[in-house]
């Protein structure tokens, strides 16, 4: 289902946690507890549904129903006073079908997942604009697995490159009550911008990641310098 309107050239296209974000942005959201996660997620998704966006929510199945209900309630409340040309679509997927498909996390496999998802969403379905939000709590049991944190950081870093090529905004959510500094610090390093309780952290060393080739870094630098 196409969302029906092209907003890919609009500079500010969404808000996450009250922060204006732009097309292609890949934000890390550091939150505390399920209540704050739900509020951030529902606000982001409801805004997208109202705007006619394709919304993709990655969260454990036992939480998906609650999120769906809250988005629906908020969308209906908003729609009661406003006429919309068409509401967007909200889809859910759990970790078993995405990040830990096959029982383990492999960054290259997950990046292939996104390539396939992009082909389906933008080329086959003709979606003009998408929002992706992912609760990363699935990662907690894997933190002590050999190489996991490094591969997760590589994935997050390279996701930014993929996100630059598609008309979308993305939020990755990490619970500060679940993850300690050994995860949070690499994750902050792996995102160009981080939201934490209303404060936005920027990372001037983001482009220097060893997970980018020189050409890829130049591509990102060029995108960042271009007016959006």
């Amino acid at each position: 289902m196409a969302s029906g309107h092209d907003r890919s050239t609009v500079e500010q296209s969404a808000t996450i946690g009250g922060l204006p974000v732009r097309t292609h942005d890949h934000m890390c959201l550091l939150y505390r507890g399920d209540e704050q996660r739900d509020e951030l997620m529902v606000a982001f998704l409801a805004e997208g549904v109202r705007a006619g966006d394709r919304c993709y929510c990655m969260i454990a199945p036992d939480n998906a129903r609650r999120i769906a209900t809250a988005v629906s309630d908020r969308t209906e409340q908003a729609a009661a006073g406003v006429t919309f040309e068409g509401l967007g679509r909200l889809e859910f997927i759990g970790p078993d079908g995405s990040h830990v498909r096959g029982g383990e996390f492999v960054s290259d496999r997950m990046l292939e997942f996104w390539e396939d998802w992009g082909t389906t969403t933008y080329e086959r379905d003709g979606v003009a604009y998408a929002r992706i939000i992912a609760d990363m709590s699935w990662a907690k049991p894997l933190v002590d697995a050999p190489g996991f944190v490094m591969d997760l950081a590589r994935y997050e870093t390279r996701f930014t490159l993929w996100a630059r090529r598609h008309p979308q905004v993305t939020g990755c959510m990490y619970d500060l009550d679940r993850f300690d500094g050994d995860v949070i610090v690499p994750i902050v390093r792996a995102h160009p911008r981080v939201w934490m309780n209303g404060v936005v952290l920027t990372n001037p060393y983001f482009m220097e990641s060893e997970h980018f080739s020189a050409a890829e870094a130049n591509e990102l630098i060029g995108d960042a310098a271009a007016p959006r």
Binding site: V149, M150, A153, V188, V194, V200, L201, P204, Y205, S209
Partner: peptide
């Protein structure tokens, strides 16, 4: 390293307006 901790050479820097 064998436990997969972050061994990036990318420096850590966080900047914010507060």
């Amino acid at each position: 390293d064998s436990l997969g901790d972050d061994t990036s050479h990318q420096p850590f820097w966080a900047h914010a307006r507060i």
